[in-house]
């Protein structure tokens, strides 16, 4: 049973955890057709995730969340990566393909939005969960034993009987547990979950979140949780990073970001969510739409949609700088004197 976290006392600095992953100036370029040209999708991202920390990465579709996460695991063969991804002292971007392959599953694992596309319909659940271990040379009986233990841990009831069942015999929520079991059986230290609950019903989503919560607490597992649902972020994560147009624009403790978002985009996102526990007359809507990667505006990429923009905003790119205990990329918070004229 989980306890309710109180709001952190604003006057004390939350103790920092030792970092597990540190990402430094990460860029991801994707090829454009066969011309040899490419487009920068992730544009210099810095962040770190502490041991056992639950961090949410939010932003609109196309902002580069998935490609950032996939870059940590080097999943896209066509992607050109630069920068550093330091995992427990090793730069993942410098590892050989073979060493990187070994790290996947055992140090970092990932689950995706659609469990069905990840499961092999012709293979039993038990074999699929055990496969990660088999690849690493663990014997059949031992792998099966561990697969059973993980399915049990994740609350698949009658797991022993169901080891020999096929994916179609499972409901959506159970399939997501199986996929989670596949990711966790290798005992990774970081789990990347890319919109794992987006396709699920509220009640199933809620169960999956509880499960992730328990596993992360029990195992000291760090989780990078990608979502566009701020409701999920608030209930699950300790820290939130907001991404816009290939960059992180705000990064801070969940409690303080929700209580007092600094970046106008974060403010808009929070205001735009309809709430089950409140009546509102009109929803706040951020005007316009996120820019496609080939048409990202100069200056602050959010400026065409920002209701607080001023002179410098369409000229200078704001850097991600410390503001209180958070980091924010916005000229309103960069410490310069400016005469805000509004626009």
């Amino acid at each position: 049973m989980r306890t309710v976290h109180p709001m952190p006392d604003q006057s004390t600095v939350t103790p920092l955890r030792p970092p597990l992953v540190t990402v430094d100036k990460l860029t991801v370029d994707m090829p454009l057709g066969r011309s040899g040209a490419s487009v920068r999708i992730v544009d210099g991202v810095d962040f770190s995730i502490g041991v056992g920390e639950r961090v949410a990465l939010v932003g609109e579709s196309g902002s580069g969340k998935s490609l950032t996460a996939r870059a940590l695991m080097r999943l896209d063969r066509l992607a050109r990566l630069s920068g550093r991804v330091d995992f427990d002292g090793t730069d993942l971007l410098k590892l050989s393909d073979r060493d990187m392959g070994r790290l996947r599953g055992s140090s970092i694992a990932m689950v995706f939005q659609d469990p069905m596309s990840f499961l092999d319909p012709l293979m039993t659940i038990g074999d699929q969960v055990a496969e990660t271990l088999r690849i690493r040379g663990i014997g059949k009986a031992e792998a099966r034993k561990r697969a059973l233990a993980v399915l049990d841990e994740l609350g698949v009831d009658r797991a022993a009987q169901r080891l020999d069942a096929y994916p179609h015999e499972f409901s959506g929520g159970m399939r997501q547990r199986v996929v989670l079991a596949m990711a966790l059986v290798g005992e990774p230290r970081l789990l990347i979950a890319d919109e794992p609950t987006t396709a699920l019903d509220v009640r199933v989503q809620d169960q999956v979140l509880d499960l992730l919560d328990d596993v992360s607490t029990r195992r000291g597992l760090a989780v990078l949780f990608i979502t566009h649902d701020l409701g999920v972020v608030a209930g699950f994560a300790e820290r939130v990073m907001v991404m816009y147009s290939g960059r992180i624009v705000e990064d801070g403790e969940v409690a303080s970001v929700f209580a007092k978002p600094s970046h106008p985009y974060t403010q808009g996102l929070i205001k735009a969510v309809p709430r089950i526990d409140q009546d509102l007359n009109t929803l706040y809507a951020i005007p316009g739409a996120p820019p496609p990667p080939l048409a990202r505006p100069g200056g602050c990429p959010f400026h065409p949609r920002c209701d607080q923009r001023f002179e410098r905003c369409d000229k200078d790119l704001p850097m991600l700088l410390p503001v209180g205990l958070s980091r924010v990329a916005c000229h309103l918070h960069d410490g310069h004197q400016h005469d805000r004229k509004g626009a």
Binding site: M1, R2, H5, G231, V254, R275
Partner: peptide, 24 residues
């Protein structure tokens, strides 16, 4: 009631309290 209780709310304090109450 169970459908409503499962809806996440974008507020860390209320959101966590709702989930804790529901799990209890």
């Amino acid at each position: 009631q169970s459908l409503l209780a499962a809806v996440p709310v974008p507020d860390p304090v209320a959101g966590r309290a709702r989930r804790a109450a529901r799990r209890l």
